[in-house]
Design a protein around this nucleic acid. Structure first.
Lengths: 282, 282
DNA sequence: CGCCTGGTTGAGAATCATCAACATCTGTGG
DNA sequence: CCACAGATGTTGATGATTCTCAACCAGGCG
């Protein structure tokens, strides 16, 4: 059966403070904010990990996000145009399908899903976004977002106004190059999903999906073998072109084969090689 | 049954000269080339439509391709970096999976398919490319092409070395903006295919595919309702995640419903609204 | 406590794949 | 120009994977 974890010591993007090496100025800002809220008779609350006064230079995701390949002064210029918004609660929308496109966003903590509603009303999840990943590039061409974007849990993001990103890219060849690369990566990733959806069985899709999450979590220094699924079985099904029931059945089947161990949203990948075998097997 | 066309007066990208408004200098080049080939005792051949001495400014696809939104002098600069290669025969490869990435390509005439071979050996078609469309963006991020690219018929392309495109984009904000838009468009398009593959029935996929081709052909001033399919049923099947047999069956079924009329590669869309209904129905 | 969302499991149905046979088209070499 | 071979396309019979419908369970939140 494989052992099942009972307690809540699971890692997710939002449960871990993402800016650990903050500078003293940031700490000061924080205590100031706290003092203010007390003065305003707001209910005293725990220190929120989603500090909005963080800089790109100190963000622990900067290896994944835009600043990679920028030097110190360039990062500072990027920092100037990034807006760190208020956190989003589970279910909040970052934007909706057809809203005018203004910005791309980098996930700082938590996770999001994108989904598309067709005229006939039925929706399909088109993507999941974890910390360090970029959201909103589907709106660049048409100037309107093609999907809606919703937080799957308490999450925070960095907003990057696109016109300013363009001007800055014009000044910084490294940034232009890197943003081309980020978009190219998105294109390559989408084509992999095309292959997955057009030729994989339900079991292969699930195995591929879980391994994908695994490697994305390990990129942000979380465990590649134990994590919480931020999305529902329904979300997974819509994303993979399967029904909820099939997703559920495959999960229990993978568990019976001792490849994974699941309990609700908690999942552990027990045999990565075995999962890979499922994908290549045929 | 709908009438079936018997003869070969069908339009494809390659059967129509794509550069009609060529300037006098180009015409001179052409006759010179012809004279040369006669002097060299080469077999006299028909005037080839794939003249390589064409400029972006005179190309009738320049409204679709990169030059859009560039002014005259900017187009000239773009022209400098574009290489117009020899034509490709049916089956020729433009590049193969894992080849080092150097350039993106614009289709000038004809058509191509991209396909991905997985480790297990089975391949899947990931895209089709018609005149005016850009090929190769899947290689930008990893510096290696993720797919192989093969000509479906006699075709010609413009090669745009990517590093030069980047430098030029750095000088010309319009070009940078436009290339971001082209990549954004590719991302949005890929996500539509995601929705198609994850939620459409076989019939909906075929209808959507045919309507997609229709609008892409009309973009290059070809008939939106009558065209030649440059790809095999097998290619279509791989692309849509169906088998050859299913593709064939759906085609005859659509024909019985008098929505289309097919004979081999010749296809006529008899009822566009009817095809759209299939997609939105339920 | 009870509701509602989310998740699991089972039985039957439907779509599409598989296997197989055959028809047709294309291009090549005699 | 014909004949042939290989690739491509069609059609039918059968079967498997996945969906649909339905019932039920668990957990979180007011």
């Amino acid at each position: 059966m494989g052992f099942v974890l009972k307690h809540k010591q699971w890692q997710t993007g939002s449960q871990k403070t993402l800016e650990e090496n903050m500078n003293p100025a940031d700490a000061n800002d924080k205590s100031t904010n706290l003092a203010e809220s007390i003065l305003n008779h707001a209910p005293p609350r725990k220190m929120c990990p989603h500090n909005t006064r963080i800089s790109c230079a100190s963000c622990r995701l900067n290896e994944l996000c835009l600043p990679i390949a920028l030097n110190k002064s360039e990062i500072h210029q990027l920092d100037e145009i990034v807006e760190r918004n208020r956190p989003y609660k589970k279910g909040d929308h970052l934007y909706r399908q057809n809203d005018p496109f203004n910005s791309v966003y980098a996930v700082r903590a938590g996770s999001f899903k994108s989904y598309f509603l067709s005229d006939s009303g039925q929706g399909r999840v088109t993507g999941f976004f974890l910390p360090g990943e970029i959201i909103g590039m589907d709106g660049i061409a048409s100037k309107h977002y093609a999907n809606s974007l919703q937080a799957l849990e308490h999450s925070s993001i960095c907003e990057i106004p696109f016109s300013q990103l363009e001007s800055l890219s014009h000044q910084l060849p490294n940034l232009q190059h890197h943003f081309f690369a980020i978009m190219g990566n998105e294109i390559a990733k989408d084509q992999q999903i095309h292959t997955l959806l057009s030729s994989y069985t339900a079991e292969q899709r699930m195995a591929s999906f879980l391994l994908g999450l695994s490697s994305r979590y390990s990129r942000v220094a979380l465990s590649p073998s134990r994590f919480l699924l931020p999305m529902t079985r329904g979300d997974i099904g819509e994303y993979l072109g399967l029904t909820v029931e099939t997703v559920s059945r495959i999960m229990t089947s993978l568990q019976r084969k001792e490849l994974i161990s699941v309990a609700n949203r908690e999942i552990e990948l027990l045999n990565l090689a075995g999962l890979r075998d499922i994908i290549s097997h045929k």
